[in-house]
Structures are given as structure tokens and as C-alpha cells.
Design a protein around this nucleic acid. Structure first.
Lengths: 337, 337
DNA sequence: TTGAAAGCGCTACCAT
DNA sequence: ATGGTAGCGCTTTCAA
């Protein structure tokens, strides 16, 4: 490993000057800087970030602005991931301040962001609700603050963690298709747009479903679903062998059971405690979801690397893993023996 | 953060003495040691491993003894994981020497291990073929060498990464069950024991399958499968709607197609390039497999932590994630837009 | 059995 | 614009 000291010796300079060149100080003659940088390049110098950290003791100011959705599991898992990576890196003084706002309250997120920006901040993790507004607000800070976005890109961030809801929908479509009896149909339920996942799930699902499987040309949409569950029954008949859901699954399934409509093959997108229970009950055959824990963990980990490792070709994009869960997926290996 | 210096001051000692107590040196009076350790405990002292590393420049000698199986993907993925984590930690001088031996050659692994042990080695990652022999060989080294095992435990290692083949088999059973038409049967194929996964996959699968789905009481076993594929045909008739495979899947499916036996629902355990192709061709509906990349990555990462972070409550056990793959799982999100 | 001092690779601050 | 020096938290070597 080649050090700043090594470079200094070869050029007849001191470490201090070399460090200055490497850290982009302007208190240095352009020519000296060039000589140093050229040699560093030639010798394949890589800054040791351990030394940097220890010397700098650089406590970075990092915020994560996450979103509480109808599916509580979403925020819980992301937070868990953030906290785990924080713990792993605590020896670096790596600490993330987590702020949560409500998914339905776009302005709350904007306000929260503006508030954070009044402080001295080095890194930001955000799941933007209103992409355009957030982008506009952040633009002036882009060279000061390292940014990781989750779910939605603002196009100038250092890393965008993509959720792949569309793909999850496709996979769900793939699975449900294989389950349906010949000449039977499926019912597709449109849960509306939650500004995060629902719409994209549905689009992906539809892209996978063959025309012949459709009972209705359009997905079923029921206004104020939770109050109007009884309307669902109108759409169900002998033809139908399966249902796709991505919102209100617990409520809808509960309702169907109460009406004694059973034995339908149900595949969902998303995961939370209720869906887990329904899988266990065999009310649902399979669900397809993103690994939100991993999103939090990966967001934190990468922000750390971007912040602490100066010589890093930064990752541009990352797509979350997609998990397919059947009932048996939930069983812990330890419980089997 | 409390430092050794802090402890020294409070006790009226020097850093050196404190360090000695903390590092378990014997050149120290028992009483002094106790005073230091007690205070450290009380103050919640945690050694900063960055400082340790930088001071010690402790190049550790680490070996990984992995196994080349019939499924080449197994070793490829584990190696990839090992290399990725190595790269991530290279600033710590973390480097793993990877040695591969053949899965069928148990003695080769033993020899390779014995050879390694003649060297000065700090950490070892191993996927033991003969558990008992390996255990016996390693016993005398247990306090000198930190050990991570993959797939099979030797009971005294620092971390055992469990593969969960049994569970994978269960999940495969779960999936195939949901796919089979009423009153139809499945054919279960016994691929024999490869000392890694096959047998466990099959056991798991069987545990999940209801009696009513079985066509034959016992899984079909065909000696020298690859030469005797034609025997398979004897077992297939109108009753059968699905097949379970965990070895020789490509060869068997190729054969069935050549005999014009199609439209059977096939679910497999395991993953490699050939299975990927069959999923894409819809020859297979789903496959259930372990994330071997993760096993390598996690093995390396944890060995690092055990080796470099002295104050660690070490993890005892880790079960690999299990992936269910349908055709659409293979599509890259980027290709969809 | 304890202490003093040097040094790992780097940053930060002061002096020139 | 450049250099000198101290120090981050720790290990290691030598001296007492």
C-alpha cells in the first residue's frame, strides 16, 4: 500500500503538501498539485479511509426521511435496516437521525426536509413523495450533501434505490397464472394509488396476465373500498378461480370468508403481519414483496461509503431484491427439528 | 467514547498497562489487571477496532476451503461473495486465500486442510465434506484459529452458516402441491446423496407432500440415472400432473421432451445456468434455492468481524436466505422499460 | 510488573 | 504556497 508519505518522499515534498493536493485545497500551486496528482495516479495511490477517519474524527451529520404508510411494515423494516447498519458502523461514529412523516401528507415531508436543510448536514436518505418538489428543494445542496433516495429518483442523487414494484407485480401475475384452472378467470382488484407501490404493482401484474384469464377488461375499482366491500360480491361467480390484490387484502379476504366465498386462489403483492397470518391460514397462496429491510440497510451502508471513502466509483442504481413467499417460506428452520 | 487513555488516567496508570490488561497479556499483576478490567466493564469501554487495526497493521492469514460440486454455480457464487466482501474490506488488509477441492474427493479436502494448518493461519472458512474427520483435525487449533463453516457444523466453530436445504425442499413441496390438479398425482425423483444438498432437499420435500398426492409410495430412484433415463418413462402415465427434481433436472427434462412428454408441472430445488434456461423456457414452473453468493459474502464478513472486533458477542448460527424463482423473477427490471 | 516512546495513515492547525 | 507538529486510539518494542 502506497501512502501520502511515500508520494511526498518521491517528490521531495512534505506529507502536508501532498495531503493538500489530494484533498483539493486551493492553498497550493497548480503545478505542484498536478505533479502530486499525476504521481498518485501513476502509483495507484488509494486513500486509506481508516486513517482519514481516525485523524478527522469526522462526525457526519446524517438524516433519513422515511415515510409511514398504510402498511406499517414498510417503515418498520426500513428503520430496522438503517439501525442495523448504523450499529455495524458505530465505530466510525456513523449515526443516522431518522425522521418519519405520513405518506398521505406530502407537505409534511417537504416541511421536514426544509427544516433539516437549515442545519449543517452531510448526508441524506429520503423516500421522496413529491419527486419534483423535492428535487427543486435539493438542487442547491447537491454538491454539499450526499443523497440517497429510496423508491423514487430525483435524478441527481448519488444513489437511487429502486423498489421494483412493477416487477413484483409481474412476478405475482406469473404465479397466479400458473395456479388458475383451465377456462377459469381471475379477478383483478385495483386498490388505487398510494404514491408508493399500489399502482406500479398493478401495472406489472396486468402486463403479465393473458387476455384469456381476464374476467373483466378493467381491474375492479371500488370507491371507498373499506365501506363498500359488499360491492365485491357482484363481481364473483363460478367462472372465477383466483383473485389478485395489493391493498386491503386483509379486509377483503375477511369479507369474502364471511360471505362464505372460499377456495379462490389469492395472490397478493406486499407483506406485513396480517398477510403473514393469511399465508399461514392458507387464505393466500403466495405473496410477492420487496425487501424493505434491505433497502434501509443498503441505503445506510452506501451513504457511509459515499461519505467516508473518497476514492469510490459510486454505484448509480440498485434494485431491491424481490421475495416470493409461500406458506412454508415462513417456517423457521430451527422450528423444524 | 471512552478510551484506554481515559481508563489509565482514572486509575493512575499508563496507557500501556491498560492495553496489556485489555489484551490479555500475562506480564501484568493479577490485581492490577482486575482493577482495569472492572473499570473497563463499569465504564462500558469498547475497543475501537479502527485504532487497533491501524496500529497493529495486522495482516491476518485467512483461508477459504470451498468445494466444487456438480452444480458449478455453487462454487462460483460462493467465490463471488467471498471476493466482494474482501474488496469491501481491503482497506483493512483483509484478504482471503481461496482453495477449491472436488466434492467427490473427500481426501483431497482433508489433505488440503492439513496442508493449510502447517502454516500460520488466523481464520478459516470451510465447507466440510466429512464432518467428523474435519472436526478431529481442527480440534487442536480451535483456540488459535477462528473458524466459519458453511453447510455443515463442526460444533466448535465460531459461526456456522446453515444452508437450509431441508426447508428449501419443504417450500418446493408447498409450491408443487398448490399447482397440481385435483385427483392427479406427482412423481418424486430421488437423485441420490451428493453429501451436500440432494438428500436434505428430498427429505424436506417429502415432509410437505400429502399422501394423496403420491403416485408411488417411495421416491423413484434410478441407478446411473444419466445412462438409464429411458426407465423414467415407465413411471409416467395419465395420473401424473407434476414432477419434483433436485438433480439431473436438465437431462431428465430433455429426455421427457424428446419422448414428447410435456405439460407436466415441474418444480426443482437448486439453481444454475441450465435451470435458469429451463425456467425461461417454461420447462420448469419454479425452483427453490439457496443464496450461495450470500453464504460466501456472509462467511467472509463475519470472519472479519470475529477476527477484527474483539468485543463482539459472536453470532452462533445463520441460516441462508431461500429464494423462490418463477420465470418472471429472472427478468431484469432495467429490461422492462 | 510497569512505563516511555514510536508509529500506523491521515487531518488540522500554526508558522513561515 | 509550503512545512512543522500534534494527535486520533491503538499496538509494539525497548527500557526500567
Amino acid at each position: 500500500m502506497i501512502t501520502q508519505e511515500d508520494l511526498a518522499k518521491k517528490l521531495g515534498l512534505t506529507r502536508t503538501t501532498v495531503a493538500r493536493a489530494l484533498n483539493g485545497s486551493k492553498d497550493i500551486k497548480a503545478e505542484t498539485k498536478k505533479r502530486i496528482l499525476d504521481l498518485a495516479e501513476k502509483e495507484g495511490y488509494q486513500k486509506n479511509y481508516l486513517g482519514s477517519y481516525l485523524a478527522g474524527k469526522g462526525k457526519k451529520n446524517i438524516y433519513a426521511l422515511i415515510v409511514k404508510s398504510l402498511n406499517e411494515e414498510y417503515a418498520i423494516q426500513i428503520k430496522k435496516g438503517l439501525k442495523d447498519i448504523q450499529k455495524e458502523l458505530e465505530d466510525f461514529g456513523f449515526k443516522i437521525k431518522i425522521l418519519e412523516t405520513d405518506i398521505k401528507n406530502i407537505d409534511e415531508q417537504i416541511m421536514s426536509l426544509k427544516n433539516i436543510l437549515t442545519k449543517n448536514i452531510d448526508g441524506l436518505i429520503i423516500a421522496p413523495l413529491d419527486k419534483e418538489k423535492i428535487k427543486k428543494i435539493l438542487t442547491p445542496y447537491l454538491d454539499k450533501i450526499k443523497i440517497v433516495t429510496i423508491g423514487e429518483t430525483i435524478e441527481n442523487e448519488n444513489l437511487f434505490i429502486e423498489s421494483g414494484y412493477y416487477k413484483s407485480g409481474r412476478v405475482a401475475g406469473n404465479i397466479l397464472s400458473t395456479l388458475i384452472k383451465k377456462n377459469k378467470k381471475i379477478l383483478i382488484f385495483d386498490g388505487g394509488d398510494d404514491r408508493i407501490s399500489s399502482k406500479k404493482y398493478l401495472e406489472g401484474f396486468l402486463s403479465q396476465i393473458e387476455f384469456s384469464l381476464l374476467k373483466y377488461k378493467e381491474p375492479i375499482f371500488i370507491e371507498n373500498m373499506l365501506e363498500n366491500k359488499n360491492k365485491l360480491k357482484e363481481y364473483i361467480d363460478e367462472d372465477i378461480d383466483g383473485i389478485y390484490l395489493n391493498r386491503y387484502a386483509p379486509e377483503i379476504i375477511e369479507y369474502l370468508k364471511s360471505e362464505n366465498i372460499i377456495n379462490l386462489k389469492i395472490v397478493t403483492n406486499g407483506f406485513n403481519k396480517k398477510i403473514e397470518k393469511m399465508l399461514n391460514n392458507k387464505d393466500i397462496i403466495a405473496t410477492v414483496s420487496e425487501d424493505f429491510y434491505e433497502q434501509g440497510y443498503y441505503a445506510g451502508k452506501n451513504l457511509f461509503e459515499i461519505l467516508y471513502k473518497p476514492n469510490l466509483k459510486k454505484p448509480q442504481n440498485y434494485t431491491t431484491k424481490i421475495n416470493i413467499l409461500f406458506k412454508e417460506s415462513l417456517v423457521k428452520l430451527g422450528d423444524l427439528k
